[in-house]
Design a protein around this nucleic acid. Structure first.
Lengths: 206, 206
DNA sequence: CCCTTTAACTAACGCCGTTAGTTTCTAAGA
DNA sequence: TCTTAGAAACTAACGGCGTTAGTTAAAGGG
């Protein structure tokens, strides 16, 4: 086959298949050859649609972030909106946990991330926050949500509690919770989110 | 050379050299061949001291986390101690920014991370927090610090502000700050840290 | 002094991302 | 309608990667 009548590949189809691979088998399983095979094509053909593999992964991340609901921003009161947005953002990563490590690779210049940052910033300024504070709050919230998403991966003490118990005496109690680490993650996120927004509300100048 | 009178390699020397490579040229520059070359040795020799490359990177991360001061925990009042610890933790990553992406790879089972989690948990319980809450607070704080460290990498809009300005109107103001993104990062971290601990203090049962 | 273990080596495997160069089909313009 | 530029697939190959197998000689314990 040299050039089919109707193109086999589109950026969309590539991103979809790449997402499926990452979701199923993890970020490391995504190689250009594997991706091409799943698409019924040879690896170099991908380079007709993306310049590098990193661009493909970028597009996967962008597609996921693009799905985050932003409608509450600028509609609901800012503390309510901020919390709802943070939960939506976190949920997007929970839906694709294997993509989360990618968060750590390089700057978030992707369009969807910028749209998201823009929306949060705008909502805060409209609510009465000084621009400099809105910038900081937006960054702080993104820090917290990104860290929480990472934390859901840092399972920590899952596999052999008793092994650690001797060396780290205080953690013995925590280990009893290790089985329900999902609930611990959820609880820690909710506690932190409420406390953080609480602390911000007390600093609101309006 | 087959076996030198005095060993060329030790785990320590390997970790030191690996850290130097990552600090100088980034995480991707750390290959077994490059590491071996810098150590004056052939790549497979490393496998006499570590089972995989990942173990080496783990050890680099562990060494950095091991340097975090924990002495304030259990000594100072918990809100003060918590903030001081968070700053120390963040400073450790600021000193080795190229290692931060590694935070995202896999669970934090390394000894130094466990020692750190144990110390925070213990200090909170000793201060009067119920164990379940201490677990959540510890996790929340780690989320926030890890996210902040990542955020310092997500430089975002550094290279061409005007390019984004048209599409993301609200961010125009934020761009004026892009030049001093280090100060923005610092400000966002401090704001979030104060607000978060503030919010936690209001929930203290004692 | 022997003998096991250790720590280096060389050679090689199968993956990886990517580039070069080729072919053929599509789509646009004269 | 014919020509031509470009797109989109291909095959072949490069250099680098992590890692394994098998070899060799010195170190160190009995």
């Amino acid at each position: 086959m040299v050039r089919p009548r109707t193109p086999l590949l589109t950026r969309e189809r590539i991103v979809e298949t790449a997402t499926a691979i990452v979701d199923a088998d993890g970020l490391d399983a995504l190689s250009t050859r594997r991706l091409a095979r799943d698409l019924g094509v040879q690896a170099p053909s991908l380079y007709n649609h993306f310049a590098t593999k990193e661009e493909i992964v970028d597009a996967v991340g962008d597609a996921i972030v693009a799905g985050v609901d932003l409608s509450m921003l600028g509609r609901d009161p800012w503390p309510v909106a901020l919390k709802a947005w943070a939960r939506a953002y976190r949920a997007a990563f929970r839906a694709h946990p294997n993509v989360v490590p990618f968060l750590a690779r390089g700057p978030a210049r992707r369009p969807a991330s910028l749209r998201l940052a823009d929306a949060v910033y705008g909502a805060l300024v409209d609510a009465g926050w000084p621009p400099a504070m809105a910038t900081r709050i937006g960054a702080t919230m993104r820090y917290f949500v990104a860290g929480s998403a990472l934390g859901s991966f840092a399972l920590g003490f899952v596999d052999d509690p008793s092994l650690y118990a001797e060396q780290y005496p205080h953690l013995r109690d925590a280990h009893r919770l290790a089985g329900h680490h999902e609930q611990v993650d959820e609880g820690a996120f909710e506690l932190g989110l409420e406390a953080l927004v609480d602390g911000l509300e007390r600093r609101f100048p309006g």
